[in-house]
């Protein structure tokens, strides 16, 4: 296992954010983190990213706790896209993506960095925004630039570790339909190249289409974790989200979920 959390718990005061959660992310697959608001998805992601230490349990990246890595080599091995897309000062979109190469200073040459930055902007369909001032971009455009930054950070293999990880916290939140899919397609391309991806998602259909495995969280507990189709069952989802769903297999191997509006299912 290259990135695993073992019985991790996080408490702030008397509030329990995560309780005894164990899960592993593997290179070459997309792991989806799903669950209602406040389930602990972002907290779990911040543990895996090494932002914070669990109150109990351990997180290991390639066998070592994240805080035992030097910050720079950790940054060459894992990239994180948080939900925060605010940037101070009038940087251009390209300058934001250039920051992704910061931990690689001295490891790659400038021409290589420029190539990676241009390619990453291209991949998230943000190349035409490169010279725009970041604060002037729309929410979805900013998210594409931030996604390009995360991708550019783990673009190539590194000597620091056998595999890289990409951690994305609701990367599709402000994206239009087409860009939701192109972004997750890009993530799949990285995964095909041996990167491990951990993606927080709210859209069950996106999870069904792009995740190899999913972990369902609810109020700090891991409810289920396993291959996407086996885990996203109607019953489990109904239990976690408190909403009634239906699923249809389209015959081409994909499963689609439909939500029944609560007003129809709650027998008011």
């Amino acid at each position: 296992m290259s990135l695993d959390a073992q019985s991790v718990s996080v408490r702030i005061g008397s509030a329990v954010l995560l309780e005894d959660v164990s899960l592993a992310a593997r290179p070459g697959e997309v792991l989806g983190l799903l669950g209602p608001n406040g389930a602990g998805k972002s907290t779990l992601l911040s543990l895996l990213a090494g932002d914070r230490k669990p109150n109990a349990g351990t997180v290991r990246l390639h066998g070592r706790e994240p805080r035992l890595w030097s910050p720079e080599s950790l940054a060459r091995v894992r990239a994180v896209m948080t939900q925060s897309t605010a940037v101070a000062f009038d940087f251009t979109a390209r300058e934001i993506v250039e920051l992704a190469r910061l931990p690689h200073a001295g490891h790659t040459d400038a021409a290589e960095d420029r190539r990676i930055i241009a390619a990453a902007l291209e991949l998230t369909d943000a190349a035409h925004l490169a010279d725009r001032l970041y604060p002037s971009l729309s929410g979805g455009e900013r998210q594409r630039v931030q996604a390009a930054r995360a991708l550019a950070q783990v673009w190539t293999a590194t000597d620091d570790a056998p595999s890289r990880f990409l951690m994305l916290d609701e990367p599709t939140a402000s994206l239009d339909l087409r860009h939701q899919h192109t972004l997750l397609e890009s993530v799949r391309r990285f995964v095909a190249a041996g990167v491990g991806a951990i993606v927080v998602l709210h859209d069950i259909n996106l999870a069904a289409a792009y995740c190899d495995r999913v972990a369902l969280l609810d109020r700090g507990h891991l409810i289920a974790c396993g291959p996407t189709r086996d885990t996203l069952t109607i019953d489990t989802l109904a239990g976690v989200y408190g909403i009634s769903l239906a699923a249809v297999d389209d015959g081409a191997g994909a499963r689609h979920y439909f939500v029944r509006p609560p007003s129809l299912s709650l027998h008011v």
Partner: peptide, 20 residues
Amino acid sequence: TRALDAFALGEREAGHLGVD
């Protein structure tokens, strides 16, 4: 200088880029 550039993204984000 470079660490301050990364800081413009936010504290957590700068940390993700390898800034202590």
